[in-house]
Design a protein around this nucleic acid. Sequence first.
DNA 1: GTTAGCACTCATCGCAGTCGAGTGCTAACA
DNA 2: TGTTAGCACTCGACTGCGATGAGTGCTAAC
Lengths: 342, 342
Amino acid sequence: MMMDARKFRILQAIIDDYILTAIPVGSRTISKKYEMGLSSATIRNEMSDLEELGYLDQPHVSAGRIPSAKAYRLYVDQLLERGVIPTGESESIHSYFEDRSRQMEDVINHAAKVLSGLTHYTSLVLSPKGQELRIRNLQLVPVSSTHALVVIVTDGGIMRDMVVEVGEGLDADALYAISRTLTERLSGMTLSEAQQALAGGSGDMHHHHRRLADNVAHFMGQAGSTSKAKLALGGPSNILNFPEYSDVEKAKGFLSVLETKDKLVDLLESQGEMAFTVRIGPETGIPELSDCSLVTATYRLGDNNHGTIGVIGPTRMHYGQVLSILNAMGQQLSILLGQYKE
Amino acid sequence: MMMDARKFRILQAIIDDYILTAIPVGSRTISKKYEMGLSSATIRNEMSDLEELGYLDQPHVSAGRIPSAKAYRLYVDQLLERGVIPTGESESIHSYFEDRSRQMEDVINHAAKVLSGLTHYTSLVLSPKGQELRIRNLQLVPVSSTHALVVIVTDGGIMRDMVVEVGEGLDADALYAISRTLTERLSGMTLSEAQQALAGGSGDMHHHHRRLADNVAHFMGQAGSTSKAKLALGGPSNILNFPEYSDVEKAKGFLSVLETKDKLVDLLESQGEMAFTVRIGPETGIPELSDCSLVTATYRLGDNNHGTIGVIGPTRMHYGQVLSILNAMGQQLSILLGQYKE
DNA sequence: GTTAGCACTCATCGCAGTCGAGTGCTAACA
DNA sequence: TGTTAGCACTCGACTGCGATGAGTGCTAAC
């Protein structure tokens, strides 16, 4: 048995209806509501076939059918093939960023809020990871007589800071001098390159201030590591709006995953450079999210940097709308965060 | 009718039992489990009195009694009067901070995690507000040809940073010179004093770089305002462990409040300088939290700064234990964050 | 003042019965 | 050969009801 055009149309109708209502869809519903020109009996036969093909599940014998993960996969693939509808969203999203803050973190947080507000799902916004960023400026700011704050400005405009121990007896001017030297030496390198350069330890300065150099190198290792990418969550409790999660146990599982952000970051990072990724149910690889879908998109920042935005919701998600909003939001973020670029 | 010692003992037993089990407490339970040397009938009479006095509520006529907010209030007040039990918690909490990060934000986040882990409630950790901090150092780090990052180090060791617009044609050295001048002028002032000093606008520099000065002043206003205090949440989903919140609607209300952090910050800040505050049910002033209690404590940072830590849970909270843990955690935070002090 | 006894209340649980949405199958029809 | 009407069947959801039992309030005796 094969999937033909009619089967596909019926499947589509079932998915649409289930996305809307979250109620198992019966043959009569499809026949009447979606004007197929077919009787419920025919639909029934087709549905039986679709079930055999693995596109539909039946919670119990006297209930309607619900789409399987495989069905959503097909649905989404079609959607992506046909291209996403980039509606007027873009403009409306733009308006949410009127008071454009320049702080990476603020932008990330705000974006997450806007995203969850627009989609009514839980949203995730991951800042670009530092790995690929190139250093533009490095400066040490004295904090105490023994510690200094490292500030690094990169071509993405992202700054990370950390307190490092410096040797005794370095006043503000000395630190500034060192900062200038370091900036000169390291400018244009990525964080990991710079880390190596420092660890390699040629140059005058390094002999005098080995400790300082080591600490700064260590910091770069940390800042450059993916784990340091900032993750903002939007509307975690949105999930509770969906009947799928009216069970407290399930909701707790979901929220717990959100709390341990590490897994999420890994998941988001694994997207790589793809414009869009849709993970349906078990495809997320996280048991607690096995009846959720995760839709992610990347936004570009500079030539070799990207961050990730995403939305988590029940598998019966408004994929089309979500993709469209993510698309618009990605563009907006690229613009907002790209404004440091010279 | 008055509250006498025996009534109080009975009330205490009821509260203890209800905190443990979340099940309405009957007269027989008290008479047997708590060895009052009184029959259930006597307890019943006393309970009836306690209800009349407003310390007990009855969900329905054939159920046991549950403590009212007024009862918890009495309970807590007694607890506070007698002094909190500062057990060995302090040591165990210390051990959670082995890898002492120096980043304010990391410490705050970690503290929230530890706090929610220890108490099994939802925890809140609010960083000290910048208002009272005194500037020790101010530095401008070039970000682009037109923007610079302001970094301020204060005597609390707290740094806030923000990108401000500077005039054209200022290179790194020029910015450093300005930074030195500003540090000299502003060092020792609080943020708001510094803001005024800058706005006042005497001094050579200000005429040349009015724009820059204005922007820095504006930043100080922001950084110093209470709204900028960082709030970390720990274990938001912990609330779902309690049967009180097995209703999804209630849980959603609770979690929504957590998402809009502003209200929480206000609530935490309103504690003022008190060592401990306990808000029971309606006392929180937030409808969604009307059957929660919020226990907060302050931790000191320097002479005139303090942050707030707190725990939110159901009204039937383990007040004694929570107070003890908050106490220990407060001390630990004071130590950790105070380590920049010269 | 305390307690035993008793009638009363009321939430909870289990159970049988009903209802109805939805199915699968068969037979007739185009 | 594909479509449809009809019908028996399934099974979850809901309803009503009696039994159960925890817990109370009241009264009378100690």
